[in-house]
């Protein structure tokens, strides 16, 4: 079956989901219009707060240490120590090895712990190894698991396998929520992104996510729009609401704003909550804090006035 199959199997007993084709030029044109949306005054403050509340504050480095993670968690809970009105982020996102440290650091704060798992970022290990990796992260206390789609199987046309592996991962998650990373930059085009989105949702993803952040070509406005449209389609066809997470290259408050607009105008306001919308980022938070500072003081701030964690 090709990677742009019109139907995605949904497992025994359910109807397959239909996949609509995507026109690249028109999709990009629509995304460009949405990115011209301008926001002012009180709405801007509310939007910036929402952006913070939707952040998965992320560190995914081989050099991550317990102290580095603790510092990140501190920032996640109290992004601006001088302003208690600034909300916490949604979650911190770390490697499985760091999950325990993160769980300790955010205990009782409402900030969730997300872990990448399943041989992140390539996913090129045996399914048993990947499943064990997921189970391990859950056992360590992760609330949310971010895994990658098997692009190898997907691009080779083995959609059944790509689908079933996600279903297996979902089972391994138990109570934890599952986010499936499509790594959109590797899929070749929007038809494939839409198809992969439908496949991941049909297999049980709670969230679909753009990228690992490890390759160029990560979240872009048209990619986020394409995935939003897939989510809307899936909800129409199955009644199930799936969340969207953008990740990779999201550094500015303006980008975050564009994504809020894209999701808000495509999926509606029901999706503008951390329960259905996330932005995976590390440096985004400080830019949002700088923008909030400008709103509060009327002055432009500088990087020395926000903490580097």
């Amino acid at each position: 079956m090709s990677a742009t199959a019109p139907f995605i199997p949904t497992g025994a007993g359910s109807r397959p989901v239909r996949v609509a084709p995507v026109d690249e030029v028109a999709l990009e044109a629509r995304a460009a219009v949405l990115c011209t949306r301008s926001i002012k005054t009180t709405s801007k403050r509310a939007a910036l707060h929402l952006a913070i509340r939707c952040i998965d504050l992320t560190t995914l480095e081989g050099a991550d240490t317990p102290d580095k993670v603790a510092s990140l968690c501190q920032k996640a809970v109290r992004p601006d120590p001088s302003d208690p009105g600034i909300p916490s982020v949604a979650a911190v996102c770390v490697y499985p090895e760091m999950v325990g440290h993160a769980v300790d650091a955010v205990a009782g704060t409402g900030v969730a712990v997300a872990s990448v798992a399943g041989a992140f970022p390539a996913g090129m290990s045996a399914i048993d190894v990947r499943t064990a990796d997921i189970a391990d992260a859950v056992r360590r206390g992760a609330d949310e698991i971010d895994i990658v789609l098997n692009r190898s199987a997907f691009l080779a046309g083995d959609l059944g396998r790509a689908h079933d592996e996600i279903a297996t991962a979902k089972e391994a998650c138990g109570p934890a929520h599952l986010k499936v990373i499509l790594e959109t930059g590797e899929l070749g085009g929007y038809d494939q992104i839409r198809s992969a989105s439908m496949l991941a949702m049909a297999a049980g993803a709670d969230f679909i996510k753009t990228s690992t952040g490890k390759i160029p070509g990560a979240a872009t406005p048209p990619t986020m729009l394409c995935m939003s449209e897939a989510i809307r389609d899936f909800a129409d066809q199955t009644g199930t609401a799936v969340g969207l997470k953008g990740a990779g290259g999201i550094r500015t408050a303006k980008q975050a704003w564009h994504y809020l607009v894209i999701v808000g105008e495509t999926l509606g306001q029901d999706w503008l909550t951390p329960a259905r919308f996330r932005l995976g980022a590390s440096s985004l938070l400080n830019d949002v804090l700088l923008q909030l500072g400008k709103l509060d003081t009327g002055r432009y701030s500088g990087p020395d006035y926000v903490t580097v964690d």
């Binding site: 926001i39 005054t41 709405s43 509310a46 509340r53 409402g110 808000g264 306001q269 503008l272 329960a275």
Partner: peptide
Amino acid sequence: PPDNDPRTEPFDLDYA
């Protein structure tokens, strides 16, 4: 869970 998450106060996508 989304439904009783205290942080999911409704957001009005209002551009002003």
